Amino acid sequence: MFASAVSNPLDMSVRQQLRTQAPGAKANAFWTVGMQMARSEGVMSLMNGFTASMLREVTYSGLRMGTYEYFKDSIHGLSAGTLTTDGLTLKVLAATVAATLGSAVANPTDLVKVRMQAYYPDGSPYRNTRHAFATVWREGAGAGAQTFAGGVRALYRGTDATTIRGVVLSVSQICSYDQIKQSLKQRGVMEEGLPLHFTASMFAGFICSVTSNPVDVVKVRVMNDKERQFKGVSDCVKTIMRNEGPMAFYKGFGMCWARLGAHTVLSFVAFERLRTLFGIAPM
Rank of each mutant, 00 (worst) to 15 (best):
F2W: 13
F2Y: 13
A5S: 13
S13N: 10
V14I: 04
Q17T: 07
Q17S: 02
L18N: 03
A25P: 05
A27R: 12
A29F: 12
F30G: 10
T32W: 11
G34E: 13
S40M: 13
V43I: 14
V43T: 13
M47R: 14
G49F: 03
T51L: 15
T59C: 10
L63P: 09
T67E: 15
Y68M: 15
E69S: 12
E69W: 11
F71C: 08
H76A: 12
G77Y: 02
A80Y: 11
T84E: 15
T85S: 14
T85H: 09
A95C: 03
T96W: 01
V97S: 09
S103G: 04
V105S: 06
V105M: 04
A106I: 09
D110R: 05
V114L: 04
V114T: 08
V114W: 03
R115D: 12
R127V: 15
T129H: 07
H131A: 06
H131T: 07
H131V: 11
A132R: 04
A132L: 06
F133L: 14
A134T: 13
R138D: 12
Q146C: 07
T147W: 06
T147S: 05
G150E: 02
L155W: 01
A161H: 00
L169K: 05
V171A: 00
S172D: 03
S172G: 02
S172V: 01
Q179M: 06
Q186Y: 09
V189M: 03
V189F: 07
E192K: 02
E192D: 13
L194K: 04
P195A: 02
F198Q: 07
F206R: 03
I207A: 02
C208K: 03
S209H: 02
T211P: 00
T211L: 05
P214W: 02
V218P: 00
M223R: 00
N224M: 05
D225A: 00
R228I: 06
Q229L: 04
F230R: 00
V233R: 00
S234H: 02
V237G: 02
V237D: 09
G245P: 06
G245N: 12
M247P: 10
F249L: 01
K251T: 14
G252F: 04
G252W: 01
F253L: 04
C256L: 10
A262M: 11
A262N: 12
A262Y: 09
L266C: 10
R275V: 12
L277K: 07
A281T: 11
